[in-house]
């Protein structure tokens, strides 16, 4: 399994905003354990996307936005979850929409604000409804305050991310 928690980028305003979607599928193995039925406690199975992976989806959305701003030259690392609040579960057959906006960015890092909306395909007329916010901070790894050195190769933005951008119709630097 590739560690990609967004399926497609649907909007990119460089240095400002990025919107991505993730379709939640019952083919994702972890949903069968999250949460599996517990017969001893009389609980039926409840497959929902783990909140930690929703966080990862927002981190990837916001991280790509921050990385794109400098042509993916910086190694952009998630450094802090400033705030995370989710008010509903994402079940199989729903679509999550991540909207990340850069709040502040400088040479050493960036802070982003993020909104999460959910579309229930059984009720398409209801459209996307807000289910939470996730605000994050990213560090440009090579500009860290401690002066630590890292490999020159940009190991953050690998082939998976490049493929995602390309299939979303966004130009990727070589």
């Amino acid at each position: 399994m590739r560690w990609m928690w967004i399926d497609r980028v649907i909007e990119l305003v460089p240095r400002q905003k990025m919107v991505a979607v993730k379709n939640v599928s019952l083919a994702e193995e972890h949903l069968h354990d999250h949460f599996a039925a517990d017969t001893q406690r009389g609980l039926i199975a409840l497959p929902v996307m783990p909140a930690s992976l929703i966080l990862e989806g927002m981190a990837q959305t916001a991280g790509i936005l921050v990385g794109h701003a400098e042509g993916f030259r910086e190694k952009v690392i998630l450094a802090k979850i400033s705030r995370a609040e989710l008010t509903a579960d994402a079940a199989p057959g729903t679509t999550l929409r991540y909207t990340a906006e850069i709040e502040r960015m400088d040479a050493v890092g960036a802070s982003t604000r993020g909104a999460i909306d959910l579309l229930d395909h059984a009720r398409p007329d209801a459209g996307f409804r807000p289910i939470g916010t996730i605000d994050l901070m990213f560090s440009h790894l090579d500009q860290n305050m401690a002066g630590a050195q890292f490999p020159e190769h940009n190991f953050v933005f690998g082939e998976g991310f490049k493929t995602l951008l390309r299939t979303s119709g966004i130009a990727v630097p070589d």
Binding site: A79, E103, R104, A107, S111, M137, A146
Partner: peptide
């Protein structure tokens, strides 16, 4: 360490000035 950057960003917002690196 990352909190120090967060504090800088938040001070800029709260007081409306820029803080150089």
């Amino acid at each position: 360490s990352i909190d120090f950057l967060d504090i800088v960003f938040k001070l800029e917002q709260a007081f409306g000035f820029k803080v150089a690196q």
